[in-house]
């Protein structure tokens, strides 16, 4: 099987905007909803997710190419990917603690949360299903991370502004959040003529 002939840069921009992980593919919704009350925390989580996403995409690409395919372990790929993700989150946390303690204090609390963020596993699965080569996977990982960061900080900013408004009682909390996300998704879809990867 060969990888589809799409320029990595188109994948990069498409994964930020038109195929945004959370607004078009619905991945990483849990933390997207629960950690978007405050702009500062949301942006911190976005950074951490981007970091982990790039890291795990590269490692999972290598693992898939050099371990899973040659050994014909494809039916075990979910387990292997999850273990790789959990392990790399641990490694990133240790490395950060040692070399960048300030950043670790800021982002540290988010790191364990990220292991169960479905966007991270989703990226690896999409990479396998769409048969991306290394450059494509790398830019797909970076773009998706940035897209997730963009989406969560935008949502947090909007929620901070709308937080004190008077709204119908039943709509408070998650209800309104979903409507905001829906409107954001509509806005992001407006770009769909520019690049597409599906």
């Amino acid at each position: 099987m060969t990888s589809p002939e799409i320029s990595p840069f188109i994948i990069f921009f498409a994964s930020i905007i038109t195929s945004n992980m959370v607004l078009a593919n619905f991945l990483g919704m849990c933390s997207f909803i629960s950690v978007s009350n405050e702009y500062k925390t949301a942006s911190g989580l976005g950074k951490a997710v981007t970091l982990v996403m790039v890291f795990t995409t590269v490692i999972n690409f290598a693992v898939y190419k050099f371990l899973i395919v040659p050994l014909e372990l494809e039916y075990l790929r979910y387990v292997i990917f999850i273990i790789v993700i959990a392990a790399s989150v641990q490694v990133i946390e240790l490395a950060m603690d040692r070399f960048l303690p300030e950043l670790h204090i800021k982002l540290g609390i988010f790191l364990p949360l990220i292991t169960v963020n479905c966007a991270i596993l989703g990226i690896s699965l999409f990479m396998v299903i769409r048969n991306y080569n290394f450059a494509q996977s790398l830019l797909f990982g970076i773009g998706s991370g940035l897209g997730w960061w963009l989406a969560i900080s935008t949502l947090a900013a909007i929620r901070e502004k709308t937080g004190k408004n008077k709204i119908p009682k039943g709509l408070e909390g998650p209800g309104l959040t979903f409507i905001i996300i829906g409107l954001m998704a509509l806005a992001f879809m407006g770009f769909s003529g520019m690049f597409a990867i599906q």
């Binding site: 607004l23 078009a24 593919n25 619905f26 119908p168 009682k169 039943g170 709509l171 408070e172 998650p174 209800g175 309104l176 979903f178 409507i179 996300i181 829906g182 409107l183 998704a185 509509l186 879809m189």
Partner: peptide
């Protein structure tokens, strides 16, 4: 078309949440 694309899903779930929390209230 909006029901086929992602935003439709977000609006639908918002409506369901609205109905259920209204009933609970």
């Amino acid at each position: 078309t909006i029901m086929v694309v992602p935003p439709g899903a977000f609006f639908m779930i918002a409506i369901l949440i609205w109905i259920s929390s209204g009933a609970m209230d």
